[in-house]
């Protein structure tokens, strides 16, 4: 009876583990293996292909054919490191802007009267009801030389001739900020809304002007929400494909786009896999730092 009970209880944590194994670790292993292979004009487009039926010797030979040549290419050609660096910069800039927009938005939402809050939150999520691709396309209509923004600026005589907004880094950052705002706003709202409003009042009562009360009380207490929002936004933004592809210029380097063209235009799957691993490695430190900070917070909370 108790044995059966404990067996069933073990099943509960086992399920997410299985999920993680099947949907993350297994594909990741395939990517790693592919990154160590060599591109070939064949189906599948890489060598070696492991064939268990061909016998042990053949398999050993195949294993010996795996090497780090793709990684050498990545670091040898400045294109890849440059595109990773520029992705990190653009995504970082977008994340900072999102934090600056997200806080006022989250604070405004949390101060809505209780019966308006669900509507406010629904409005933040509403854009998801339209296809992401269509929403990014809509920005082309706004940003292009004869688009709405330029028409408005010309009409207001702010500028004399159309400004080239489209196909610039500005457009990419704008697109990223637009696309990822809900992912920043929602965790921030959750963190801010939980706080007792009298904490801010207490800080002001004790002589801190409003901005200082925010800095000394609101910010440290909502930091977990800010970090969660920043990660939720930064990580996918670094690998973003659609936004740089549609809004960015032809000379814009972003790693997602480079990856895409290696996979589909060059059909160099091994090099693309190596690039994907490099991207993952670049994103690992911030995640680990976040985990360490969270763990310490739990420790001290006790």
């Amino acid at each position: 009876m108790t044995r059966r009970g404990s067996w069933k209880r073990a099943l509960v944590p086992a399920l997410p583990m299985l999920w993680l194994g099947a949907l993350f670790l297994a594909p990741f292993a395939i990517i790693v293996r592919m990154s160590l292979s060599t591109a070939a004009t064949a189906q599948p487009p890489y060598r070696p292909v492991f064939d268990l039926a061909a016998g042990w010797d053949r398999l050993r030979g195949d294993l010996g054919a795996l090497d780090l040549a793709n990684f050498a290419t990545l670091f040898g050609d400045s294109l890849y490191v440059a595109s990773l660096w520029s992705s990190l910069k653009l995504a970082g800039l977008a994340t900072v802007i999102l934090l600056l927009i997200g806080y006022p938005l989250a604070l405004a939402l949390s101060r809505l009267p209780p019966r308006w809050k669900p509507l406010g939150l629904a409005l933040v999520i509403l854009p998801f009801w339209t296809s992401f691709l269509i929403r990014v396309y809509a920005w082309i209509g706004i940003l292009r030389p004869e688009g709405y923004l330029n028409t408005a600026l010309l009409w207001l005589s702010v500028v004399d001739e159309p400004v080239a907004f489209l196909n610039t880094d500005f457009a990419i950052v704008l697109g990223l900020v637009y696309a990822y705002l809900p992912f920043m706003a929602l965790p921030l709202f959750a963190a801010v809304d939980r706080l007792d409003p009298s904490l801010m009042e207490a800080a002001q009562d004790l002589g801190a002007p409003r901005w200082k009360a925010f800095w000394l009380v609101m910010l440290p207490l909502s930091l977990p929400g800010a970090v969660a929002g920043a990660l939720l936004v930064f990580i996918p933004a670094v690998g973003e494909v659609v936004v740089p592809d549609l809004l960015g210029g032809s000379d814009t380097l972003m790693i997602g786009r480079t990856l895409w063209s290696e996979f589909f235009s060059n059909r160099d799957w091994p090099l693309a896999s190596a690039l994907a691993i490099m991207l993952l490695a670049a994103l690992l430190p911030p995640i680990l730092i976040y985990r360490a900070v969270e763990a310490r917070r739990w420790e001290t909370a006790r």
Binding site: D196, S198, L199, A202, D205, G207, R210, L221
Partner: peptide, 20 residues
Amino acid sequence: QPPHLRPVNMMFQSYALFPH
């Protein structure tokens, strides 16, 4: 006059102690 400039202090019902 904003609260931070008033020579008055308050003990809140919830105490509003800064948890961090």
